[in-house]
Simulated scan of single mutants.
Amino acid sequence: MTEPTSQPASTVGPLVVHTAEELRRALADAGRVALVPTMGALHEGHRSLMRLARAQADTVVVSIFVNPLQFGPNEDFDRYPRTLDTDTGVCAQEGVDVVFAPTVNTMYPTEQMVTVQAGAMGDRLEGASRPGFFTGVLTVVSKLLHLVGPDLAVFGQKDAQQLAVVRRMVADLNLPVEIVGAPTLRDPDGLATSSRNVYLDADERASALALSRALNAGRDAAADGPEAVRAAAQGVLDEAAKAAPPVELDYLALVDPATFTDVPADFTGEAVLAVAARVGTTRLIDNVPVRLTRS
């Protein structure tokens, strides 16, 4: 096997496959394989994941699948952007080798009776706000890992709880894959890059910037301990709740990155400050790492 090297952007474009059999043929003699699982509507954040994958593998596979199992009955499954042609162009520019774009019938040919659940770790924060979400995520990720058989899979740190539960699933089920976390990419104004940002109008986007301001304020208070971190972030969000349009807070939490349980008042070490809020009709999440040390 050759050492993985960075490659220039493809001038031909990736091979686009839709079935498990096509995927199997495409990955014959593929060498070291990296998977980047996505739901499409690809943006600069996804590009950063592809570049990280490209630097570590001989063959890069990007999956594009809007997974119905992780959407609740009142969520945006029907309006979630589906832009396969544009997404394939993005993949070509980033030197992706294979795009796996299965249909719902390919991924779920019959009713899904057996699912993968995150346990108590998946019942908090995103799991509490979106019941069943992590069951949908882990089930589809597990299926993609089995179908692609990658050596590594790249996930964004922006979805920190998702990254944590995927890592725990891989460890608990002894899956032979390395899970790589990629740093959160931000737009120039500080908003975490997300496919859902396109739903925001100019006023909503201005209000949404309070999320990153709150996280930065919390991180800046780290020397004074966990309670100071929470209070600093909450203060920014309290002001944002009075804005027009308002930021409607779902949760703000300072958690252990491995378990996503709240850290105690005397905690030292690495933590994650996570927030979720709604601006208009759009729900946004964000987080930053926080290193807590005794002052």
Rank of each mutant, 00 (worst) to 15 (best):
A206W: 07
A206K: 08
S207R: 04
A208C: 15
A208I: 13
A210D: 07
S212K: 14
S212R: 13
R213S: 10
R213E: 15
A214D: 13
N216M: 07
N216I: 13
G218D: 05
R219E: 10
R219T: 00
R219Q: 01
A221E: 06
A221W: 08
A222P: 03
A223N: 04
D224E: 11
G225M: 05
G225R: 15
G225W: 02
E227L: 02
A228N: 00
V229C: 01
V229L: 02
V229D: 00
V229Y: 03
R230M: 09
A231E: 13
A232S: 06
A232D: 05
A232N: 03
A233P: 05
G235P: 11
G235C: 15
V236S: 07
V236T: 15
V236D: 09
L237H: 00
L237F: 05
D238T: 10
D238E: 14
E239D: 15
E239F: 07
E239G: 14
A240H: 00
A240W: 08
A241T: 01
A241Y: 05
A241L: 07
K242H: 12
A243Q: 13
A244C: 06
P245H: 04
P245W: 04
P245D: 06
P245S: 03
V247A: 08
V247D: 12
V247T: 14
E248D: 15
E248C: 06
L249G: 00
L249F: 11
D250E: 12
Y251K: 08
Y251H: 02
L252T: 11
A253P: 03
V255M: 01
V255S: 03
V255Y: 00
V255L: 08
P257K: 06
P257N: 10
A258R: 11
A258L: 12
A258E: 02
T259H: 09
T259C: 04
F260M: 11
F260I: 10
T261A: 04
D262T: 04
D262E: 14
D262W: 06
V263M: 04
P264V: 00
P264R: 00
A265L: 08
A265V: 06
A265T: 11
A265Y: 01
D266G: 01
D266I: 02
D266T: 10
T268V: 14
E270Q: 09
A271P: 01
V272G: 12
L273F: 10
A274C: 04
V275N: 02
V275K: 03
A277L: 11
A277H: 07
R278I: 10
R278K: 15
R278G: 11
V279I: 15
V279Y: 12
V279S: 12
T281R: 13
T282D: 08
T282V: 13
R283P: 09
R283A: 08
L284N: 07
D286L: 12
N287M: 08
N287S: 06
V288P: 13
P289C: 14
P289E: 13
R291T: 12
L292V: 13
T293M: 11
T293K: 01
T293L: 10
